[in-house]
Protein backbone atom coordinates (compact mmCIF):
# COMPACT_ATOMS: atom_id res chain seq x y z
CA UNK A 1 0.00 0.00 0.00
CA UNK A 2 1.14 3.49 -0.86
CA UNK A 3 -0.55 5.48 1.88
CA UNK A 4 -0.34 8.92 0.31
CA UNK A 5 -0.20 10.17 -3.27
CA UNK A 6 -1.19 13.62 -4.45
CA UNK A 7 -1.21 13.93 -8.27
CA UNK A 8 -1.96 17.23 -9.98
CA UNK A 9 -4.36 16.01 -12.67
CA UNK A 10 -6.69 13.11 -13.50
CA UNK A 11 -4.37 11.90 -16.26
CA UNK A 12 -1.49 11.80 -13.81
CA UNK A 13 -3.63 9.91 -11.31
CA UNK A 14 -4.72 7.37 -13.93
CA UNK A 15 -1.13 6.70 -15.06
CA UNK A 16 0.00 6.59 -11.42
CA UNK A 17 -2.63 4.01 -10.51
CA UNK A 18 -1.76 1.88 -13.53
CA UNK A 19 1.94 1.92 -12.68
CA UNK A 20 1.35 1.22 -9.01
CA UNK A 21 -0.83 -1.76 -9.87
CA UNK A 22 1.93 -3.10 -12.12
CA UNK A 23 4.33 -2.68 -9.20
CA UNK A 24 2.07 -4.79 -7.01
CA UNK A 25 0.28 -2.19 -4.89
CA UNK A 26 -3.31 -3.07 -3.98
CA UNK A 27 -4.22 0.03 -1.93
CA UNK A 28 -3.48 3.68 -2.64
CA UNK A 29 -4.19 6.64 -0.35
CA UNK A 30 -5.29 9.58 -2.51
CA UNK A 31 -5.12 13.06 -1.00
CA UNK A 32 -8.54 14.66 -0.49
CA UNK A 33 -7.22 18.13 -1.34
CA UNK A 34 -6.57 17.13 -4.96
CA UNK A 35 -10.34 16.69 -5.53
CA UNK A 36 -9.63 14.17 -8.26
CA UNK A 37 -11.87 11.40 -7.02
CA UNK A 38 -14.79 10.85 -9.37
CA UNK A 39 -16.68 8.04 -11.06
CA UNK A 40 -14.15 7.64 -13.91
CA UNK A 41 -11.31 7.10 -11.46
CA UNK A 42 -13.52 4.73 -9.48
CA UNK A 43 -14.19 2.69 -12.64
CA UNK A 44 -10.49 2.68 -13.49
CA UNK A 45 -9.55 1.61 -9.95
CA UNK A 46 -12.11 -1.21 -10.08
CA UNK A 47 -10.84 -2.39 -13.45
CA UNK A 48 -7.30 -2.41 -12.08
CA UNK A 49 -8.58 -4.07 -8.86
CA UNK A 50 -6.85 -1.42 -6.79
CA UNK A 51 -8.56 0.14 -3.78
CA UNK A 52 -8.31 3.91 -3.44
CA UNK A 53 -8.58 5.35 0.07
CA UNK A 54 -9.10 9.04 0.69
CA UNK A 55 -6.23 10.37 2.77
CA UNK A 56 -5.57 13.75 4.35
CA UNK A 57 -2.32 15.24 5.57
CA UNK A 58 -2.71 17.46 8.63
CA UNK A 59 0.21 19.64 9.67
CA UNK A 60 0.15 21.10 13.18
CA UNK A 61 2.75 22.71 15.41
CA UNK A 62 0.68 22.54 18.61
CA UNK A 63 -1.81 20.06 20.12
CA UNK A 64 -4.60 22.69 20.05
CA UNK A 65 -4.03 23.30 16.37
CA UNK A 66 -4.13 19.56 15.64
CA UNK A 67 -7.40 19.26 17.59
CA UNK A 68 -8.92 22.13 15.61
CA UNK A 69 -7.82 20.65 12.28
CA UNK A 70 -9.30 17.29 13.25
CA UNK A 71 -12.66 18.93 13.99
CA UNK A 72 -12.65 20.81 10.67
CA UNK A 73 -11.05 18.32 8.27
CA UNK A 74 -11.05 14.98 9.98
CA UNK A 75 -13.53 13.22 7.68
CA UNK A 76 -11.01 11.33 5.50
CA UNK A 77 -10.56 7.58 5.84
CA UNK A 78 -6.85 7.87 6.47
CA UNK A 79 -5.44 10.82 8.40
CA UNK A 80 -1.70 11.41 8.35
CA UNK A 81 -0.35 13.77 10.98
CA UNK A 82 2.73 15.87 10.40
CA UNK A 83 3.71 17.27 13.82
CA UNK A 84 5.91 20.34 14.00
CA UNK A 85 6.84 19.87 17.65
CA UNK A 86 7.23 17.07 20.16
CA UNK A 87 4.04 18.21 21.96
CA UNK A 88 2.06 17.90 18.73
CA UNK A 89 3.65 14.48 18.16
CA UNK A 90 2.59 13.32 21.62
CA UNK A 91 -0.98 14.48 21.01
CA UNK A 92 -1.18 12.85 17.58
CA UNK A 93 0.31 9.55 18.73
CA UNK A 94 -2.28 9.27 21.53
CA UNK A 95 -5.23 10.15 19.27
CA UNK A 96 -6.65 7.12 17.47
CA UNK A 97 -7.93 9.24 14.57
CA UNK A 98 -4.37 9.83 13.38
CA UNK A 99 -3.41 6.58 11.64
CA UNK A 100 0.08 7.65 10.62
CA UNK A 101 2.33 10.14 12.38
CA UNK A 102 5.02 11.37 10.03
CA UNK A 103 8.53 11.88 11.31
CA UNK A 104 10.52 14.80 9.94
CA UNK A 105 14.35 14.94 9.97
CA UNK A 106 14.28 17.35 12.91
CA UNK A 107 11.86 15.13 14.86
CA UNK A 108 13.67 11.80 14.48
CA UNK A 109 16.14 12.54 17.29
CA UNK A 110 13.24 13.04 19.75
CA UNK A 111 11.77 9.59 19.12
CA UNK A 112 12.92 7.43 21.99
CA UNK A 113 11.40 4.33 23.56
CA UNK A 114 8.92 6.35 25.65
CA UNK A 115 7.69 8.42 22.72
CA UNK A 116 7.37 5.30 20.60
CA UNK A 117 5.32 3.65 23.35
CA UNK A 118 2.68 6.38 23.01
CA UNK A 119 1.78 4.97 19.61
CA UNK A 120 0.37 1.87 21.28
CA UNK A 121 -2.25 4.08 23.01
CA UNK A 122 -3.53 5.57 19.75
CA UNK A 123 -2.84 2.47 17.70
CA UNK A 124 -1.15 4.44 14.94
CA UNK A 125 1.93 3.98 12.82
CA UNK A 126 5.11 5.96 12.60
CA UNK A 127 5.46 7.24 9.05
CA UNK A 128 8.25 8.33 6.74
CA UNK A 129 7.75 10.31 3.54
CA UNK A 130 10.07 8.80 0.90
CA UNK A 131 9.83 11.96 -1.18
CA UNK A 132 12.30 13.53 1.23
CA UNK A 133 14.97 11.21 -0.17
CA UNK A 134 14.16 12.21 -3.75
CA UNK A 135 14.32 15.90 -2.84
CA UNK A 136 17.55 15.47 -0.90
CA UNK A 137 19.42 12.12 -1.05
CA UNK A 138 21.26 13.11 2.16
CA UNK A 139 18.01 12.29 3.98
CA UNK A 140 19.00 8.62 3.61
CA UNK A 141 20.67 9.08 7.01
CA UNK A 142 17.27 10.08 8.44
CA UNK A 143 15.70 6.95 6.96
CA UNK A 144 18.51 4.88 8.51
CA UNK A 145 17.80 6.44 11.92
CA UNK A 146 14.08 5.79 11.34
CA UNK A 147 14.66 2.12 10.49
CA UNK A 148 17.02 1.60 13.44
CA UNK A 149 14.39 2.96 15.84
CA UNK A 150 11.37 1.12 14.46
CA UNK A 151 13.20 -2.21 14.24
CA UNK A 152 14.84 -1.85 17.66
CA UNK A 153 11.63 -1.12 19.54
CA UNK A 154 9.21 -2.99 17.20
CA UNK A 155 7.27 0.17 16.37
CA UNK A 156 4.61 -0.26 13.65
CA UNK A 157 5.65 1.92 10.73
CA UNK A 158 4.58 2.98 7.25
CA UNK A 159 6.45 4.29 4.24
CA UNK A 160 4.73 6.32 1.55
CA UNK A 161 5.75 8.19 -1.57
CA UNK A 162 3.67 11.44 -1.61
CA UNK A 163 4.02 11.09 -5.37
CA UNK A 164 2.69 13.84 -7.61
CA UNK A 165 3.66 11.99 -10.81
CA UNK A 166 4.79 8.54 -11.96
CA UNK A 167 8.46 9.44 -11.59
CA UNK A 168 8.13 9.81 -7.81
CA UNK A 169 6.62 6.37 -7.20
CA UNK A 170 8.65 3.87 -5.16
CA UNK A 171 8.83 0.25 -6.24
CA UNK A 172 8.88 -2.22 -3.29
CA UNK A 173 12.27 -3.40 -4.54
CA UNK A 174 13.63 0.14 -4.13
CA UNK A 175 12.65 0.05 -0.45
CA UNK A 176 13.98 -3.50 -0.06
CA UNK A 177 17.41 -2.74 -1.48
CA UNK A 178 17.62 0.62 0.29
CA UNK A 179 17.12 -1.16 3.63
CA UNK A 180 19.54 -3.96 2.65
CA UNK A 181 22.26 -1.49 1.69
CA UNK A 182 21.84 0.15 5.11
CA UNK A 183 22.36 -3.20 6.82
CA UNK A 184 18.74 -3.92 7.77
CA UNK A 185 16.52 -6.80 6.72
CA UNK A 186 14.84 -5.92 3.44
CA UNK A 187 11.77 -8.04 4.20
CA UNK A 188 11.21 -6.16 7.46
CA UNK A 189 11.36 -2.86 5.60
CA UNK A 190 8.66 -4.10 3.22
CA UNK A 191 6.28 -4.22 6.20
CA UNK A 192 6.16 -0.45 5.79
CA UNK A 193 4.28 -0.92 2.53
CA UNK A 194 1.62 -3.25 3.93
CA UNK A 195 -1.96 -1.87 4.18
CA UNK A 196 -2.97 0.34 7.10
CA UNK A 197 -5.60 -1.33 9.28
CA UNK A 198 -8.90 0.36 9.94
CA UNK A 199 -9.85 1.72 13.38
CA UNK A 200 -11.63 -1.36 14.70
CA UNK A 201 -8.91 -3.67 13.49
CA UNK A 202 -6.29 -1.51 15.17
CA UNK A 203 -8.09 -1.71 18.52
CA UNK A 204 -8.42 -5.46 18.27
CA UNK A 205 -4.71 -5.67 17.47
CA UNK A 206 -5.21 -7.47 14.14
CA UNK A 207 -3.86 -5.43 11.28
CA UNK A 208 -4.81 -5.96 7.66
CA UNK A 209 -1.50 -7.17 6.17
Amino acid sequence: MDSYVCPASREELASLLKLQRRMGYKYVGLCVESGLWNKDIDVLARSLSIKVILARLLCADRPGEAKKLLREKGEAELIIGRPGSIEAYRFMSRDSRFKIIEVSPSMIKHIDRGEAGLLTIGGGYLGFDLKRIINSPSNISVLKAFFSRVFKWSIPFKLYSSATNVFEVWHPKHVYFLAKSMGFQGRKALEGLSPVGMVNQLYSGGRDE
Binding site: I133, H171, F177, L178, S181, M182
Partner: peptide
Protein backbone atom coordinates in the same frame (compact mmCIF):
# COMPACT_ATOMS: atom_id res chain seq x y z
CA UNK B 1 24.60 -5.00 -6.56
CA UNK B 2 22.34 -4.06 -3.61
CA UNK B 3 24.14 -0.75 -3.17
CA UNK B 4 23.89 -0.06 -6.90
CA UNK B 5 20.12 -0.69 -6.93
CA UNK B 6 19.67 1.42 -3.78
CA UNK B 7 21.51 4.29 -5.47
CA UNK B 8 19.44 3.89 -8.63
CA UNK B 9 16.25 4.20 -6.57
CA UNK B 10 17.18 7.78 -5.62
CA UNK B 11 17.55 8.85 -9.28
CA UNK B 12 14.42 10.60 -10.48
CA UNK B 13 15.72 13.33 -12.78
Amino acid sequence: YEKVIACLSTVRC
